Computed example of a mutant assay.
Amino acid sequence: MSAARWNRARTLLTQPTTHAIFRPVAIRAPIQHHLGRTSAVATVAARTQDRWRPWMMASIATAGVLSWQLSQSLVEAESQARPATVIDEDSKVEFPTIIPSEDGSPARLLGLGVRKITFLKVQVYVVGLYAKASDLDDHNSRFRALPEVQKFQRTDTVSSDTAFRAIVQNPIELVLRIVPVRNTNGPHLRDGFTRNLTQAAKHQKLDDIENEEAMKGIIEFKNLFPKGKINAGQAMLFRKSPDGSMSIELDGEVLGTTRNTWLIESFFLGYLQGENPISGKARDSVAQGIQDLLLQ
């Protein structure tokens, strides 16, 4: 090799090579660029969330208020649909639609009507029948589940009498609420009730043993009545308990209790039977109440 060519080769070998040098900055720069974009996006999202957070919280709060208002409106609508009292159209006596049952839960009015002395057309008292609201609303309750009740037909005396008898004879709480139209006294009301019961015993053609049991019940019943004055508007409650007893209450005070099965059934059925009920208006009203109940 000539000296000139050797010198040229040595010069090329000693020159620095640039294309093969690893430059970390050349790689780090794109990573920092993408990280910077990600950070910027996260910052914008955080700022956007902070910007809309008050609105979102206000929306959640508003939704909660609207939900509560809706539930309150439904409760109010339900209470408005069922008035607190009803007025007997003949006597103008006012009756509550709800009274406490034996355990304190609500008992609901099924129907009411006035009792009149027929030949004088004198109004004596108003009677209403109540049953526990749970028995009326629950389709599996003893009241609603009775086959006789499910077949109830208001215009069919046979089916309605059968249903009323089943209701009274089963362990279902019922309350007869009786309110005098004018001032009276315990003996006067007592005599009217016992007269109806005595007529029922004769009509049923009881044998000697049954008749003796009925007379014992009537005597026991008579002894439970107060002797003093009972003012117009004072309420007497005859409460048939699921345990088979019946108590008599006056203005919330229990006067006494009887467990005579014949008396309890005859007393309630006297207002519910289709033939010569004590109050035809009450019987028809209760029958309509049950018919409406079954259509719900």
Results as ranks from 00 to 15, higher is better:
W52I: 15
F221H: 05
E89Q: 09
A40H: 11
Q288G: 09
E249N: 11
L74S: 06
L206W: 04
E213H: 09
I87C: 04
V168S: 05
A214W: 08
P24F: 04
L109K: 04
T17Y: 01
A4Y: 02
A61T: 12
P16H: 08
L70A: 15
T85H: 11
Q199I: 13
G128W: 01
L146P: 06
G64P: 01
G36D: 05
I218L: 03
F22D: 07
Q169K: 10
A107C: 06
E249A: 01
S2I: 06
G36F: 12
S91M: 09
V158L: 12
I264P: 05
N7D: 13
S160Y: 03
G228H: 10
P277L: 09
R142P: 01
L295W: 00
S245P: 00
R115P: 05
L70R: 14
A81Q: 09
E148T: 14
R190E: 02
S247Y: 00
P24D: 03
A235F: 01
T17W: 00
V86P: 00
A107D: 02
R115Q: 08
A201P: 04
Q32H: 10
I209N: 04
I60M: 09
K202P: 00
F221I: 04
P83W: 03
H203N: 15
V114D: 08
K229V: 15
Q49A: 15
Y271H: 15
A133P: 00
T157W: 03
A232L: 04
T184M: 05
I117S: 10
K202H: 13
T257M: 06
A58N: 13
S279A: 06
I264M: 05
F22L: 12
G244N: 02
L197W: 03
D90L: 13
W52E: 08
P54Q: 01
L250P: 02
Q15L: 13
V181L: 01
M1L: 11
L74W: 09
V124A: 14
F238D: 02
L109R: 04
Q150N: 06
H139K: 14
A214V: 12
K151V: 04
D137Q: 11
S71G: 08
T18N: 08
F143Y: 12
A145M: 05
R10L: 14
W262H: 08
G113K: 06
S241I: 01
S266P: 04
S101R: 04
V65Y: 01
R10Q: 14
K205M: 10
A77F: 05
A201D: 11
V149T: 04
A133S: 13
L197G: 06
G217K: 07
K222V: 06
F22C: 02
A131W: 01
R23K: 12
T11H: 12
A201M: 12
E148M: 11
P30M: 05
W68A: 14
A287P: 04
N7H: 12
T162R: 12
S105N: 13
D191C: 02
V122A: 08
G104K: 07
T162D: 13
V168P: 08
G228K: 07
K121G: 06
E94P: 04
P277V: 11
P226V: 12
R115A: 07
L129P: 03
Q296Y: 07
P24V: 08
P277M: 07
K202E: 15
Q234V: 09
N211P: 01
P16K: 12
P16G: 09
Q32C: 11
